[in-house]
Design a protein around this nucleic acid. Structure first.
Lengths: 209, 209
DNA sequence: ATTATCTATAGATCTATAGATAATGC
DNA sequence: ATTATCTATAGATCTATAGATAATGC
């Protein structure tokens, strides 16, 4: 009886864990492009295998189902967004207006990863419940970073005191107004540059906090 | 040679225009439920035909492709949202705080049509370019209603003067913060009632306008 | 005769796997 | 011997249409 390993909750017969990690990276890199261009459902597992550089048979040694690939993709995207936001937070802590700095850096991450964030909005519902739950947890964790910033600025007196609930919603609003730049880009980019967008939205958000 | 008619840009051989309208309604009613439950790609044309009460052969007398059905569905949803928002605007014009009234009514429409709005976010990208364009135009038109309200309130002096560009972005923000209640419902509804949400977001929006 | 509807299926996929083959290490 | 990879295909769809049938109106 073979012992079954699992990396990130995805079972595999392959023994070499480093190889699994490498193949997963290859799969993600190939799939993310195809999903952005064609969407999840119109992309075939064969296309992904070919783009990743191995056969359809090998692909299925590293994942158990097509949905597993979508999960790997969503997880990788969130990891990159989170890394960007965390860095921004550390860098911004000392600045003149730390909240404006964090918003700015976060919006720039959204601008860079526009297609990727849009993909998550469109395809999260195609994930089986188990994976969907994990992806939504990622979303909450990223919003949590904004909560920390707000909480710190309030306790240091740099922002007026507001209720916990109100602060939580402001954190979600910042998240979503960043995403808005990705899913309304078809309209917004015709009227505003990213810099315009950041400036106007920062005014909007700081207006009442 | 048969002359080909077209209702809403969808060609059909059926002569009786009322019948076409009725069948389109049946198709939309059947499809909207199935799409919400299963998504567009996992729903089959056979399921739609069965739920609509006729055969797969008849279905294809009224549409030319599965994408046509998605378009009819998206268009019907936007029509209902727009109706709700227009009514709200007329009703709210006289009130104490007209902007707060409009926001409230719009957010209630979003609450009622939560699943439908979410569907549009998820499946718009599955439409062929021609239909997608029309759906995005609907979105712009609904946002335009908020622009009118803002413009009116500014010119009557009920709101402070802000630039046209700034006002346009605020209109988009109102749209999107309504949608946010639908696509973050899995989180928000655990922490806030609709009424909480409306109250806090109204504060947030009015804070700086 | 004309219009609308249905049945049956062509034709074209696509996911996932079984079994064969190649590569690696003892 | 063990591990990783590949080829070939089973099996299960699904969209869209052709051609037959039923219903309606003159």
């Amino acid at each position: 009886m073979e012992k079954i390993r699992a990396i990130k909750g995805i079972p595999t017969q392959i023994k070499n864990a480093d190889l699994v990690a490498q193949r997963h990276r290859q799969i993600v890199d190939a799939a993310v492009q195809l999903f952005i261009e064609q969407g999840f459902h119109k992309t075939t597992t064969r296309q992904i295998a070919r783009a990743a550089g191995f056969s359809i048979g090998s692909l299925y040694e590293y994942i158990a189902s097509k949905e597993d690939i979508l999960y790997l993709v969503c997880d990788a995207i969130h990891a990159e967004v989170e890394r960007g936001v965390s860095q921004a937070m550390n860098r911004a802590s000392g600045g003149h207006n730390p909240l404006a700095e964090v918003i700015r850096e976060y919006f720039l991450v959204c601008n860079r990863m526009s297609d990727h964030i849009l993909l998550i909005y469109q395809e999260t519902q195609s994930l089986p419940p188990r994976w969907r739950k994990k992806v939504l947890e990622n979303e909450v964790r990223i919003t949590g970073i904004f909560m920390e910033v707000l909480a710190r600025l309030i306790s240091s007196g740099d922002l007026p005191h507001i209720s916990e609930r109100s602060m939580e919603l402001v954190a979600h609003n910042i998240s979503v107004l960043g995403h808005m730049w990705t899913f309304r880009r078809w309209f917004l980019a015709r009227h505003y540059s990213v810099e315009d967008y950041i400036e106007l939205q920062t005014e909007f958000i700081l207006g009442n906090v």
